[in-house]
Design a protein around this nucleic acid. Sequence first.
DNA 1: ATGGTGGAGTTTCCA
Length: 286
Amino acid sequence: MRIATWNVNSAKQRMPRLLTWLEARQPDVVCLQETKLTDVAFADLLNEPLGDLGYEVAHHGQGGFNGVALLSRVGLADVERDFPGQPVFRGDTEARAISGTCDGVRIHSLYAPNGREVDSDHYAYKLEWFDALAAAIAAGPAAVALCGDMNVAPADADLFDPAAWVGQTHVTVRERQRLAALGLIDVTRVHWPEHPRLFSYWDYRAGMFHQDLGMRIDLVLASPPVAERVAAAWVDRAARKGKLPSDHAPVIVDLDEAPDGDIGPVVPPPSNPRRTGRTKLPHALD
DNA sequence: ATGGTGGAGTTTCCA
């Protein structure tokens, strides 16, 4: 099963690219963020072309800002908008979370609050949002993947220059603690433990992408039953190139088949690490 | 030149 997550920065502006990219990459499950559309507008624009590509679609949007979607061609069950305990900002529950079960995995498409300035009301909201998310995930299914724009760079290695972020959001200890407290595995980093430029976001301004001055804030965070199935995990930088790109690149993760629980009593071959149960994966979140 | 881009939606806010 191929899972992808992409902050498209307006599904309307990105529609031609999105459809071309889906055909090229053939993801089975797609998490989108910053659609910036209402549910009606998203459906009017995309339900037909996405249906033609074989996807079931669930969208949660408010128009203008935020907006998340979940596409699946391997089943899309028990769709939930928001998550239990999700905080409000200035009275509004923002459209930042949608989840569904796809081929046995609970998939969350998430757009974390930006935080704006450290210690602003938006920053406090961001921390509360992560706290509530952690509680909701802990109470949910064991096989889970959080996919999306988490607006936190897990480590300094996820920044082109850590000095450029001193005093700014996305890198503070409190934000990184919230990310780590989710207790999940950052599967892209696990598969590229030493990669110095595993960025997923580059500011539109000042030629940042062309100089590869970016940061990694788009993540797939998986629980052990999912993480141990990861065969590949990468950032699709090509999708950031060319005309009218999003400022984010997609992250793509391939999962091996789930272990089959219906083949009778199994004595797992001890030489196969996939069957010996997960003990430890390197480079979990700091 | 006192800025750099892009998307929202009206005029400035947001990222």
